[in-house]
Amino acid sequence: SISSRVKSKRIQLGLNQAELAQKVGTTQQSIEQLENGKTKRPRFLPELASALGVSVDWLLN
């Protein structure tokens, strides 16, 4: 799922939720909701993929 991929990649990069949120241009709460499965397809998906160094396709599939 996107939530597990985001969380595992974030941890692999040594980032906390607030640091990832800053790179993406969103809030820590938005990252938390995404990782908890409350958000399925965030509006900041391209920025998120870029910050994590992955493709949008990788996040979604």
Score class of each variant (00 low, 15 high):
27 T>C: 08
24 V>K: 00
4 S>C: 12
25 G>F: 03
52 L>I: 05
56 V>D: 06
46 P>W: 10
54 V>E: 06
23 K>H: 08
25 G>C: 09
3 S>D: 07
56 V>L: 13
4 S>L: 11
47 E>I: 08
51 A>P: 00
37 G>C: 07
23 K>T: 09
6 V>P: 02
53 G>R: 05
11 I>R: 08
46 P>R: 13
15 L>K: 03
43 R>V: 14
45 L>N: 01
21 A>P: 02
47 E>F: 05
10 R>H: 01
58 W>I: 04
55 S>K: 08
28 Q>V: 15
5 R>D: 02
32 E>A: 13
52 L>T: 01
11 I>N: 08
13 L>G: 04
27 T>Q: 06
18 A>D: 12
54 V>A: 04
39 T>R: 08
54 V>C: 06
6 V>Q: 00
61 N>K: 09
59 L>T: 00
30 S>T: 10
3 S>N: 08
7 K>D: 01
1 S>W: 09
21 A>G: 06
7 K>V: 10
52 L>D: 00
55 S>F: 05
44 F>H: 06
55 S>V: 05
57 D>W: 09
49 A>D: 01
9 K>H: 06
60 L>V: 13
57 D>Y: 08
37 G>W: 03
32 E>M: 14
30 S>E: 15
3 S>Q: 09
24 V>S: 07
43 R>T: 14
47 E>T: 09
9 K>S: 08
25 G>W: 00
21 A>M: 01
30 S>M: 15
20 L>D: 03
61 N>Y: 11
57 D>G: 08
11 I>M: 12
43 R>C: 13
6 V>A: 08
59 L>C: 01
14 G>L: 05
29 Q>D: 15
38 K>E: 15
45 L>S: 03
22 Q>C: 10
56 V>K: 06
51 A>M: 06
14 G>I: 02
26 T>W: 05
17 Q>P: 09
26 T>S: 07
28 Q>I: 15
50 S>P: 04
36 N>V: 10
43 R>E: 14
8 S>V: 10
23 K>I: 15
60 L>K: 09
55 S>D: 15
13 L>I: 10
46 P>H: 14
16 N>P: 05
18 A>V: 11
13 L>F: 03
49 A>P: 00
8 S>G: 10
17 Q>N: 04
61 N>W: 09
30 S>D: 14
56 V>W: 07
59 L>K: 00
4 S>R: 10
32 E>H: 10
45 L>M: 09
61 N>D: 14
13 L>W: 02
53 G>L: 05
9 K>C: 13
34 L>E: 01
58 W>S: 04
51 A>G: 04
11 I>E: 14
12 Q>Y: 08
49 A>S: 06
49 A>Q: 01
60 L>A: 09
61 N>E: 12
4 S>D: 15
13 L>T: 05
57 D>Q: 09
44 F>M: 07
47 E>N: 09
54 V>Y: 01
15 L>V: 06
24 V>A: 11
43 R>P: 13
55 S>T: 15
3 S>P: 08
33 Q>Y: 11
9 K>M: 14
1 S>G: 12
6 V>R: 02
8 S>M: 11
10 R>I: 04
57 D>H: 09
49 A>I: 04
4 S>W: 07
23 K>Q: 10
6 V>E: 01
17 Q>C: 11
13 L>N: 07
33 Q>N: 14
27 T>F: 04
61 N>R: 08
51 A>T: 07
55 S>P: 09
15 L>F: 11
60 L>S: 09
30 S>Q: 15
36 N>F: 07
46 P>S: 14
21 A>I: 01
25 G>V: 03
60 L>I: 14
26 T>Q: 10
52 L>C: 03
2 I>K: 03
52 L>G: 00
48 L>V: 06
40 K>E: 15
27 T>N: 10
58 W>N: 04
58 W>E: 07
45 L>K: 00
42 P>C: 12
34 L>S: 01
1 S>Q: 10
4 S>E: 15
10 R>N: 02
32 E>V: 12
51 A>K: 04
19 E>M: 07
23 K>V: 11
54 V>R: 01
57 D>F: 08
34 L>D: 02
59 L>Q: 00
8 S>H: 14
58 W>K: 03
56 V>I: 13
54 V>N: 00
36 N>S: 13
19 E>T: 05
31 I>K: 11
34 L>V: 14
51 A>Y: 05
12 Q>W: 06
51 A>N: 04
7 K>L: 05
54 V>L: 03
43 R>W: 15
19 E>W: 01
41 R>G: 09
51 A>W: 04
29 Q>W: 10
26 T>F: 03
37 G>K: 05
30 S>F: 13
52 L>P: 01
8 S>T: 12
24 V>T: 09
51 A>F: 07
49 A>H: 00
40 K>Q: 14
7 K>W: 01
10 R>F: 01
38 K>A: 14
14 G>C: 08
38 K>W: 10
59 L>V: 04
18 A>N: 11
32 E>I: 12
16 N>V: 05
12 Q>K: 08
26 T>I: 12
44 F>N: 08
19 E>P: 00
17 Q>L: 12
61 N>C: 11
24 V>L: 08
50 S>N: 14
33 Q>M: 14
18 A>K: 12
58 W>V: 04
31 I>T: 01
50 S>C: 11
23 K>F: 10
11 I>D: 07
29 Q>H: 13
20 L>T: 02
54 V>I: 06
46 P>E: 13
42 P>D: 04
40 K>S: 15
43 R>I: 13
55 S>W: 04
41 R>T: 14
27 T>S: 13
37 G>F: 04
55 S>H: 09
10 R>A: 02
27 T>H: 07
44 F>E: 05
24 V>I: 11
59 L>W: 03
42 P>K: 04
2 I>E: 03
18 A>S: 15
6 V>T: 08
56 V>N: 05
20 L>H: 01
19 E>Y: 02
8 S>I: 10
1 S>K: 09
23 K>D: 04
50 S>Y: 10
11 I>F: 06
38 K>D: 15
9 K>L: 13
58 W>A: 04
55 S>N: 10
28 Q>S: 11
37 G>M: 05
51 A>S: 07
31 I>H: 01
42 P>Y: 09
51 A>D: 02
32 E>G: 07
17 Q>I: 12
27 T>D: 12
29 Q>M: 12
56 V>A: 08
34 L>G: 01
10 R>S: 04
46 P>K: 15
18 A>L: 14
28 Q>T: 14
5 R>I: 09
36 N>D: 12
26 T>L: 09
32 E>R: 11
45 L>H: 01
3 S>A: 14
17 Q>F: 07
23 K>P: 04
49 A>R: 00
45 L>E: 02
36 N>Y: 06
30 S>I: 13
39 T>K: 10
4 S>A: 14
4 S>Q: 14
10 R>W: 00
40 K>L: 15
32 E>D: 11
60 L>N: 09
59 L>G: 03
25 G>N: 09
1 S>H: 11
54 V>G: 01
41 R>D: 12
61 N>P: 08
43 R>N: 14
47 E>A: 13
29 Q>F: 12
45 L>A: 07
27 T>Y: 03
8 S>W: 11
9 K>G: 05
52 L>M: 06
7 K>F: 03
45 L>G: 04
26 T>V: 15
38 K>H: 14
57 D>R: 08
37 G>V: 03
15 L>S: 05
4 S>Y: 07
38 K>R: 12
61 N>Q: 12
47 E>M: 09
16 N>Q: 09
42 P>T: 09
8 S>F: 10
26 T>P: 01
20 L>P: 02
57 D>M: 07
60 L>E: 10
12 Q>P: 00
16 N>I: 06
10 R>D: 02
57 D>S: 09
31 I>G: 00
21 A>N: 01
60 L>Q: 10
5 R>G: 03
33 Q>W: 14
28 Q>E: 13
11 I>L: 14
5 R>H: 04
36 N>A: 15
40 K>N: 13
43 R>F: 11
8 S>C: 15
1 S>L: 10
7 K>N: 06
58 W>P: 02
9 K>R: 15
38 K>L: 14
4 S>I: 12
58 W>L: 04
11 I>V: 11
2 I>L: 15
41 R>C: 15
33 Q>S: 14
61 N>M: 10
8 S>Q: 14
33 Q>I: 08
42 P>H: 09
17 Q>E: 11
29 Q>N: 12
40 K>H: 14
50 S>G: 11
27 T>I: 06
44 F>A: 04
29 Q>T: 11
40 K>I: 15
18 A>Y: 13
11 I>S: 08
9 K>T: 10
13 L>R: 07
38 K>P: 08
13 L>Q: 08
29 Q>L: 13
51 A>L: 09
60 L>M: 11
4 S>H: 13
7 K>S: 09
12 Q>I: 08
47 E>R: 11
